[in-house]
């Protein structure tokens, strides 16, 4: 795997509290990478280690296979969770300031910023003062300031907090757009819906540990891979007799329209699904059988509770 960022055995302690304990992960180039976890799990600490705001006690951070140095940080676009903008400055001036700090010329920065302001429908705010903006508006400005120099690696800490659904959607599309243009995006969130929609990889951090890492579809399949939804005509006892030792019924069955019943069954990994289908077809009037993928929300809760 071609990884842009590799984190190896990173630990970080604060007085009396371990924020990160031997965390390792790998971010593939071009991915949208979600860092999930409950509040206080260590997501922000991990991000601050990557941006070198916090120095890890042990472990390494590799960017493009080389240990991260001070200068590398300037190539990263970073939007912290607690948004930082100079309150007394005008919006346009402020965006220009950050863009030029990141190395754009004044003309180039202004040109790109104007385009971004149009795209996010905030062109009218160019002359407004930051202190007059609402939280969501300030978020958009901060987002633009983070991405305007088109860095290869972008890190957003809770990018969707403070946005209404319409603007959150707008932001999601812009994030996917950035990925399509070649950027790698890491973002932390506890909003699972956004993870399903845009992440292709995730790491789940809980109590300072990396408890789950990998591509989203793979995680979902492995977490719920053996659950199936069956639609059939049999009652519960007929169904369980037909399944015999091959599978077990999970939870309640219930009637649905057309005289059918719907049941959830669990087929162990070593069982041949075809034989189960044959048995159901012969005895229960099988209409359909499909694999049920758990939602990221379920996985998140089960992983945090240790029941995955």
């Amino acid at each position: 795997m071609d990884s842009i960022l590799k984190i190896e055995n990173v630990s970080k302690s604060y007085t009396g509290h371990k924020a990160l304990d031997d965390v390792s992960l790998e971010v593939p180039r071009g991915a949208v990478y979600g860092l999930l976890g409950p509040n206080g799990a260590g997501k922000t600490t991990l991000i601050r280690v990557i941006t070198r705001i916090t120095i890890a006690d042990s472990g390494r951070v590799l960017l493009d296979g080389k240990p991260l140095t001070g200068g590398d940080v300037f190539k990263i676009g970073y939007m912290p969770e607690e948004r930082g903008l100079y309150k007394k400055m005008r919006v346009g001036e402020q965006a220009l300031f950050f863009a030029r700090l990141k190395g754009l010329t004044k003309q180039e920065a202004e040109h790109r910023l104007r385009r971004w302001f149009e795209r996010l429908a905030i062109a009218d705010w160019w002359e407004r003062k930051v202190e007059d903006l609402s939280k969501g508006m300030a978020q958009k400005v901060q987002f633009i300031a983070t991405v305007v120099h088109e860095p290869k690696l972008l890190i957003f800490d809770e990018p969707f907090s403070g946005f209404d659904p319409i603007n959150a959607n707008l932001l999601k599309e812009e994030i996917l757009g950035l990925r399509d243009r070649g950027a790698t995006i890491i973002f932390s969130t506890h909003n699972m819906a956004s993870v399903e929609e845009i992440c292709d990889h995730i790491t789940l951090i809980n109590k300072s540990h990396n408890i789950l890492s990998g591509p989203v579809d793979q995680i979902r399949r492995s977490a719920g891979g053996n659950n199936f939804e069956v639609v059939h005509r049999a009652d519960d006892s007929t169904l369980s007799a037909a399944l015999a030792e091959r599978a077990i019924i999970v939870g309640e069955s219930h009637n649905i329209i057309g005289g059918y019943r719907e049941s959830k069954i669990y087929i162990p990994r070593d069982e041949d699904v075809k034989r189960v289908i044959a048995a159901l077809n012969d005895n229960c009037g099988l209409r359909s059988l499909r694999e049920v993928m758990p939602s990221m929300n379920d996985i998140f809760i089960r992983a945090v509770n240790g029941t995955l």
Binding site: R52, Y78, P80, E82, G84, L101, Q142, T146
Partner: peptide
């Protein structure tokens, strides 16, 4: 917290 943006 502008500092977080500034130092990166």
């Amino acid at each position: 917290r502008v500092i977080d943006v500034m130092v990166t």
